[in-house]
Write a protein that binds this DNA or RNA. Structure first.
Lengths: 161, 161
DNA sequence: CATTCGTTTCACAAACTTGTGAAAGTTCGG
DNA sequence: CCGAACTTTCACAAGTTTGTGAAACGAATG
């Protein structure tokens, strides 16, 4: 007889902490990353600030700051519950797809900055200018190709659904 | 008569600082980022530690730490000069392409971690498990597509050369 | 073999991040 | 309205990161 899938709470807590650390390296504030994966790991569709604090062993203040950040970058939505003081926090669908796209805006910034550098160097025919132009072209190209790249994921997901 | 391209030292110094800050946000140690762009911005093919320190207004100690880091991640090579105490530091060609690829290994790590999460959640048929499986699939797909993506850049560069 | 120039190492100081406790603010229930 | 339940804000403490000065180290030169 097949074993019914069993949730392993201990492993889950470890997972949340590990993933939190990974995404902290990626640039998210640490507590925000932990809250994010607490939501990812929850069987519930949404959690209150109190529940988050309890599960993570963090103070209400820390949770407050974290969810503010996460709603700011649109990975989490706040859902006020009518007739209650608690707000519910829910993950935004496809937020991973979105946040990865958002991260990529930095690439455009880098390409633009490199272009400034080319000008300051005295144009692309100087030694430094050529180096910088090369860098600019690479990141510009990545920037241009990204939308198509991401569309392919949307396409694939549509097909396998 | 066309104006000869003129290097603007002031703009260049600003560019180095600005780009340094951008890449510090990207995850590089700040001083390493500044050294990197000091090299990018130089007309010379390579610079000594002393020159780097002078141009950046940083101590020898700081330069030492920064170049150690940069050689570690293979964005810079140290070229000892025979019959001299000074080492020269030179940018590695195509290092931007390379470093971007290297950055992407984190994606694989994230996909693997997400897969652990699916198991801990009790499989992809649980609510949390399905969420995590979705995340895993996205990053796994990106990971799989990246080599092809980067090959297209190499291809394009070959054509436009 | 001593001197000098250049680089590296180490301990410490300054600045920044991050999370907590406590108090204030808000919203619902009586 | 008053009290209770949550949440947010703020000042501060703890932990990290980052760069400096000083001393040690190593290599070339006379």
């Amino acid at each position: 007889m097949p074993q019914v899938p069993q949730r392993d709470e201990t492993a889950m807590r470890q997972f949340v902490e590990y993933m939190g650390r990974l995404l902290a390296d990626w640039g998210l504030p640490r507590m925000a990353a932990r809250v994010l994966f607490c939501l990812m790991a929850a069987e519930e569709r949404s959690l209150t600030a109190g529940e988050l604090g309890e599960r993570l062993g963090a103070s209400p203040a820390a949770i407050s700051g974290a969810v503010r950040y996460l709603t700011q970058i649109q990975m989490v939505v706040r859902e006020p519950v009518p007739g209650s003081r608690r707000d519910l926090y829910r993950l935004v669908d496809d937020s991973w797809y979105e946040v990865t796209l958002a991260k990529m805006t930095l690439i455009k910034t880098i390409a633009d900055a490199a272009d400034e550098g080319v000008a300051a160097a005295g144009g692309p025919d100087t030694v430094a200018g050529a180096r910088l132009a090369n860098m600019r072209d690479f990141y510009q190209w990545v920037q241009d190709e990204l939308p198509t790249f991401m569309d392919r994921w949307a396409e694939r997901k549509r097909r396998t659904r």
